[in-house]
Design a protein around this nucleic acid. Structure first.
Lengths: 149, 149
DNA sequence: ATTGCTGCAAAACGTTTGCACCTAT
DNA sequence: ATAGGTGCAAACGTTTTGCAGCAAT
C-alpha cells in the first residue's frame, strides 16, 4: 500500500519524540492522506465520524498538529480564521493563489520564490522554519468560479 | 495634524461607496493609525474602551473592514487564527518574518518579490488583489526573543 | 504500574449577527 | 422620512481544555 512510507515516517517521529504509538493517531494519518486538497481539522473530524469512527475531536486536532510537526502535512492559513491542512506526502512544495470572490484555491510554483526565505532568515539571524506565500485575486473566468462566498 | 490626509481619504472612500460619515468611524480610524505595529480587532476595541470610548465591538470590526477596503490599513494573518491589522499610512509595503518561538514580527522588503504576484495572476487569468508572504523561523539571538509563547 | 492518550463535554476565543434605537442624509 | 449605522448581548464556528477512564509502554 502506498501510505506505508508515511506510516513509517510517523511512527519514527512518534518514537523519537517519545509519543505513544496509538491506533487513533494512525487512523487520523490515514484519513488526512486520503483527503483530496485542503481541509479543516473539523472537516476531517466530521468526515471520520461519518465513516463510523469513534475518534474524538481533540484527538483529531492533536494528531494533525503532530503530523504537521513531522511535515507529513502542512498547515495553511488563507485569512478566514480557519486552519487548513494538506498532505505533503509525495507532493512538491507549492504556493497558493486564492480567489477572494469564490474561495477557489490554485496551486502554483515559481522558482524565484524558493531561495528567498532562507536568505531572509540568514539576514536576520533566524533559523528557517517555513514560509507561506499566498496571492489573492479574482478569477476573471467566472465559468470556473465556485462562488462559495 | 498628520492624519488629516488619512481622514480625507477615508471620507472620500465612504462617499464613493455611499457609506455614511459617522463620528464612530473616524474614531476607529484615529485609534488604528495611532496604534504601533500589528493589532487585533479586539485589542483595538479594548484599548478604545479603556480610554473611555463608548464604541461597540461590532462598529470596530465593521470599520476596520472598511479601512482595509480603502487600503489605509492592511489585514494580516500569521497562522494563529486571529486577524491582525496594521496601518499602511505613509508606510512602504513590506513582508513579515515571524519567530515561531516568541511571536516577534520583523518586517522586511525584498525587491524580487514585488513583481511575482501580478505575474502569477496574469498566468491564471486572475485580477490581482493582494498577497501575503510570511516567513517563519526561530530567532537565534535569544536576547531579542520575547518568549511570549 | 505508570504516564500519557483518549473520548466527551464544556469552555474559550475571536468574530458575526439580530435587534431596537438612533442619526446622517 | 428613511435607509443605514450604532450599541448591546447573544450566537456562531473553530479550537482548546478539564477530567475520568483507558491503554501503550
Amino acid at each position: 500500500m502506498k501510505n506505508d512510507k508515511a506510516i513509517e515516517i510517523f511512527k519514527d517521529f512518534l518514537k523519537r519524540g517519545k509519543y505513544r504509538i496509538t491506533p487513533e493517531r494512525f487512523e487520523v494519518l490515514e484519513a488526512a492522506l486520503q483527503h483530496e486538497g485542503h481541509f479543516g481539522a473539523d472537516d476531517l473530524y466530521v468526515k471520520m465520524k461519518n465513516t463510523k469512527s469513534v475518534i474524538s475531536r481533540a484527538t483529531v486536532y492533536n494528531t494533525l498538529e503532530l503530523l504537521a510537526q513531522c511535515e507529513l502535512i502542512s498547515k495553511r492559513n488563507f485569512g478566514d480564521n480557519m486552519t487548513r491542512f494538506e498532505s505533503n506526502f509525495k507532493r512538491q512544495t507549492h504556493d497558493h493563489l486564492i480567489c477572494v470572490d469564490c474561495g477557489r484555491i490554485i496551486e502554483f510554483t515559481d522558482p524565484r520564490i524558493k531561495k528567498i526565505p532562507q536568505e531572509i532568515c540568514d539576514n536576520f539571524d533566524f533559523e528557517f522554519h517555513s514560509y507561506s506565500f499566498n496571492i489573492f485575486g479574482r478569477c476573471k473566468n467566472k465559468k470556473d468560479c465556485l462562488n462559495k462566498k
